[in-house]
Design a protein around this nucleic acid. Structure first.
Lengths: 124, 124
DNA sequence: GTATTATTGCAATATAATTGCATTAGTAAA
DNA sequence: TTTACTAATGCAATTATATTGCAATAATAC
């Protein structure tokens, strides 16, 4: 499917870039200036994920967060890092630390995810 | 609130013990022999969590799993280990490996969770 | 056996995300 | 520039998972 450039997509990408953090649909809706339906935000974000522009992580509180990819190429993605969520300001960010696990004998490893909650340097 | 011993509680505990894995409400409902409402299962499981008998983890696919606690006491819990989910047989289990993260300067660490998907030794 | 109140079942509600469908609007070609 | 094609959007409805309200039931202490 050939993608088209739209105001909605530009606005969402801009917001993700300027925030430098991972954002939920709810956060994007609250912060974005363009008038845009809730569903559109989800669809824009999901299309970014399909295209490898963002990645989606389900937080420990049950919401999806979306963050710009860095170090991802076509089919080789790199999202296996820890994510931090601040209990005070709600900020979610990708941490550089990769998630490394040792599985028992005979197990095959697929994807990994890791979450840490706590207080960020501002809210500390 | 003083707890009472009921058939529902006994059945759920038995199932958790005999399975040796973490189970979702859905799995419990499917495997349990007693007739028991969906809501009752959730309530029984949540009461176990309050009492420190089980712990609850939100999986990477968005469902809650419940596992018997081991090494938890009154207020000192020990759930900061990785959880494995088999993509084939859906089994979820607690791995011995603890989740260890290093946060940036000035951050305060709260809880951590870690998930690994893949194939278990049986489904491999 | 009786009283107290924790527990249960059923219906309704909450929350987060997705789907269906008609309308709107990018984009490439004429 | 105009036209045709179809991706993208908005709104309503739906899905999926979990929780809440409330009346009825049953575990436990006396």
């Amino acid at each position: 499917m050939k993608r088209r450039s739209t105001p909605a997509k530009k606005a969402v990408i801009e917001l993700l870039k300027s925030s430098g953090t991972a954002l939920s649909q709810e956060m994007i809706e609250a912060q974005i200036t363009e008038k845009m339906d809730r569903v559109t935000i989800y669809r824009v974000l999901n299309s970014f994920c399909e295209d490898g522009i963002t990645h989606r992580i389900l937080s420990d509180e049950g919401k999806y967060y979306f963050a710009l990819c860095s170090g991802c190429e076509e089919d080789k993605h790199n999202h296996e890092h820890f994510h931090f969520r601040c209990l005070e300001c709600q900020k979610v960010e990708c941490l550089p630390q990769p998630v490394i696990v040792n599985l028992p004998e005979g197990y095959i490893q697929g994807n990994t995810t890791g979450w840490v909650t706590g207080y960020c340097n501002n809210c500390n």
